[in-house]
Design a protein around this nucleic acid. Sequence first.
DNA 1: CGCCACATTGAAGGCAGTCAAAGGTGGTGG
DNA 2: CCACCACCTTTGACTGCCTTCAATGTGGCG
Lengths: 231, 231
Amino acid sequence: MIDKKEILKKSPLFSGLTDQEIGQIEAIGITKKYVKGELIFSEGEKATGFFVNLSGQVKVYKLSADGREQILHIISPAEAFAEAALFTGSTYPAFAESLSQTQVFYFPKESFFGIIRKNPQLSLNIIGGLSLWLRRFVDLVEELSLKDVSARVATYLLDTSVRSGRELEEGIVFELDVSKMQLASRLGTISETLSRVLRRLREQDIIRVEGKKIIILKREALKEISSGIVR
Amino acid sequence: MIDKKEILKKSPLFSGLTDQEIGQIEAIGITKKYVKGELIFSEGEKATGFFVNLSGQVKVYKLSADGREQILHIISPAEAFAEAALFTGSTYPAFAESLSQTQVFYFPKESFFGIIRKNPQLSLNIIGGLSLWLRRFVDLVEELSLKDVSARVATYLLDTSVRSGRELEEGIVFELDVSKMQLASRLGTISETLSRVLRRLREQDIIRVEGKKIIILKREALKEISSGIVR
DNA sequence: CGCCACATTGAAGGCAGTCAAAGGTGGTGG
DNA sequence: CCACCACCTTTGACTGCCTTCAATGTGGCG
């Protein structure tokens, strides 16, 4: 069983709130469960509330006319998503789908607005959360527009190694937390291309790949590729 | 001479505020003037405040290692920019440069924070502004990743025609408010490619182009191209 | 009038996507 | 426990959109 309140407390969205305030928020939340691959909301659907991920992974993504997919973000536990949809137009701007067995907290718009009005701190937290999203999207635009796939892959590997890597003698080791298909979609490419890029990095002895386990052997070389100096 | 207060009132960022509150805000603002092509701030620079455009145009953009440019947004009068930089990391995430003779209002971080604390309404306005930025960036990501250049051009023409077009008997007429180089950079491409796309649209009698003046002859055809059904 | 930045056009090449097929892996049920 | 199956991953060959490079056209402004 998941301690929902604990997870809410971990979310930056609710930081600085009193226990009582978090209790109020928990009280208006509705727990929803999804199996792997279930649709949480669709692009264009009326936005009736927003979500906090409790457990599992959720991908937020766009689809093209011919079915190609661009993942905007993969939501980890304690992260909020679709907050912005409450404040702009009234529809969700993308799709959201569970990547695994997932539990989310759903907060209906109206009741949440009631709480915001009474908590100026909450407004500031929301501003912080939106600003973070904004920065992520600026980075994503930069990558898609100004970097080739190798650079995007290198950037992702470096970022992930900083977030969750362990420095061993063989190199910096970490596990991809998503399938390579999802990763490709997040990086604005397809699994075939990702596969080829990883192979080239392997052949240059910059990384080692064992399934989802990645070992960075030459951090500096990756950095150069990441910044677009070399390919 | 520009009536700064009038422009502040027009900005959604300050809507719902009393005259007195807007007066306070005006009081902490510093007017800055730039000639065409001047740098307002650089990526990575410490974010000491944010801006509201009073007159002229400002481009906010990213640069690649080899000097290619992606415009994130072109700021029109009464629009705020770099608000988000106040709330995330302390640096500007992109460059800003004047595209014409420009006047901006600059609000230093600290004094503005003082005002925010006393005005919950202002927080809500900021949330609205950030949400709007977010939606724009989601759209930009979608375009860059999932649409080809023709579709992006078509989308831009349609959007602009809705914003500033006049329906005449010859078609929907409007003026591009930026040079084709800037437009190309905004659309994630280069002027040569944009030129070719516009030529193809001309040859198909979907639009007419007379310098910066665009006349949409076949709106439906543009819509199909915009959505990626045809090219 | 001449300069300069912007715009257009053509030719050529490259990065990445598409198509097709084989290889690998994990999970489920017999 | 193992065999089967579905899905993911990898590899190869090919295609195409877009960029790059180069040259010419054009319009505004000193």
